[in-house]
Design a protein around this nucleic acid. Sequence first.
DNA 1: GTGAAAGCGCTAACAA
DNA 2: TTGTTAGCGCTTTCAC
Lengths: 337, 337
Amino acid sequence: MSPTGRRRYVTQADVARRAGVSRPLVSLVMQGSSHVSEAKRERVLKAAAELGYLDNGVATSLAGNRSRYVIGFLAQSLANLVFVDVYENLAAQLAPLGHSVVVMQGGFTPAEEDRSLRNLVTLRPDGLVVVGYAGSTSALGAAVSSIPVVAITRQIEMDGVSWVYSDDRLSSELAVDHLVRLGHRDIVHLAMPADIPYEERADGFRVAMASRGLRGRVLFPEFSARGARIAVEKLISGEDLPTALFCGNDVLAMGALEALSAHGLEVPGDVSVVGHDNTAAAAHSGLTSVDQHAGEQGRIAAGVVMRMIESQDFPSVTEKHRLDPRLEIRRSTAAPR
Amino acid sequence: MSPTGRRRYVTQADVARRAGVSRPLVSLVMQGSSHVSEAKRERVLKAAAELGYLDNGVATSLAGNRSRYVIGFLAQSLANLVFVDVYENLAAQLAPLGHSVVVMQGGFTPAEEDRSLRNLVTLRPDGLVVVGYAGSTSALGAAVSSIPVVAITRQIEMDGVSWVYSDDRLSSELAVDHLVRLGHRDIVHLAMPADIPYEERADGFRVAMASRGLRGRVLFPEFSARGARIAVEKLISGEDLPTALFCGNDVLAMGALEALSAHGLEVPGDVSVVGHDNTAAAAHSGLTSVDQHAGEQGRIAAGVVMRMIESQDFPSVTEKHRLDPRLEIRRSTAAPR
DNA sequence: GTGAAAGCGCTAACAA
DNA sequence: TTGTTAGCGCTTTCAC
């Protein structure tokens, strides 16, 4: 025990001593090098097991390891299941290869996102995946100058940044098309905040409505289920209720459903509701929702980071992937009365 | 650019050169030491900003920094909002102090949990918070021998491990008491899997029922909303439906609600349903649910890790916190018909 | 208040 | 196949 009371982890030096070999030899064994005699390899492995050796990724990283990567994952919010979906698929793809992904939550303000990004970069990950990034591009630029970055959900045009993106304008087009075909003409869009970069969802809605000769109303509630609930309650009490609601994401849609049911209004009888992201919440509540293939985006991102990390001439090589969303129709949408 | 195409991050040496000071002086400034002249401090800060210096937590950690901690957070599942709730409160508590928390997802099998734990420990965090830990205690022991660990949701009696725990037996007692008072006598418990350590929830249910002279049935569905749905469908088709369902957590409860509504059964008219964790999902669907104060657990854990890290004689000092859950009553429960 | 020197645990040339 | 020697970027004595 050291003076501070902290115990030391077992190091490769400890293992080497016990196995009666040199220190670097232990390193070779740990990296799975094939240039080690079977006898020594076994001695080293045995000693390591006996001592309870746990490799020190910090030292490894400092020394410049190039075999097991750690990927940083910056999620705007962990409370939103789409992001978790992306993460799980990304991690599942990378884990079998021996790489790990560490997560940090950003936030909804650029300041929070910047702070989290810095904290994450401090760990010197070999690559970065950001999803729903709302931070400053300058902060991203600083990271990018040294490691590969892939942005999900945003098309960030920057040297060294790849992106995987589901077409948000098409999302809105799909939702509007579905509702209009059912016979709706008065549709309100509960949008994501304008300051976090999902403006294409709202723009797409306006365009989709306009192209059909309809005028769509766009509301910007506070970004939470509660905010959506309040916004919808205002519509109800103002007798300004449309026949359909298209929500920027499922979280907002949940709030809308709550408000509607609290006021005795039926879905889809009185109001049809469409969400976005097709999360578990949507499935549970029978919500029609736009699916942006979050899992697939995570899987694609895994491939992209790996290729970027191993590319000989980063940051000049970037990839851009655009996916087409699709609509999952459930019982929350029907023809208006 | 190095031969591999990777650019180098700006180091303190670069900053020192530019500011015309020695290398260690930059280190002092970065740590906010007060033993630096104002003039040099400014020169250093200016140079750092111009160069875009980002501190290297890896090197810092290796060198044995003791001022900004990184806490590892191992969550069984990020798709379960209770865990996210714990994380957010923990992080919110630590962030203002300059510490950061990195997240890794474990899993539902000991093997997965062990692997994630190792990956996390590899980053050499200054402390560890595990929630819903289902891994082997030996793997935990290896980590624990060097850093403070606090377990949430589990009472792990081990040297160097503190815990924060909401009384799971009481949870079941609260749920059963509520339902029995309403007049229910036939209650089924959809339990969490027996192999991940939540057996106290099921045990508590059995005890609570027995003490009232009732025999409670306990089912172990596959651990997912889908598993619960299938289990409840089986009850329905077997005409074996109780008047009330107490679910091990809200995810299972969501599945139960789905199955019920799919078969035209009313909640609470035909069946009352109680969940556990009082997540956003419960709030959205009007589900009565046991609240285990997840946020509060996260906040407490933050204090505990900090005290343990700064304790002079870790691992001898551990703390144990037990909370009393409470029942949040919503519209999913009522007297049986 | 500031600089010089040593070392954290590991990997990567290079020799042997 | 193995050992030797440096050095990653930082903090920390310890002198000055």
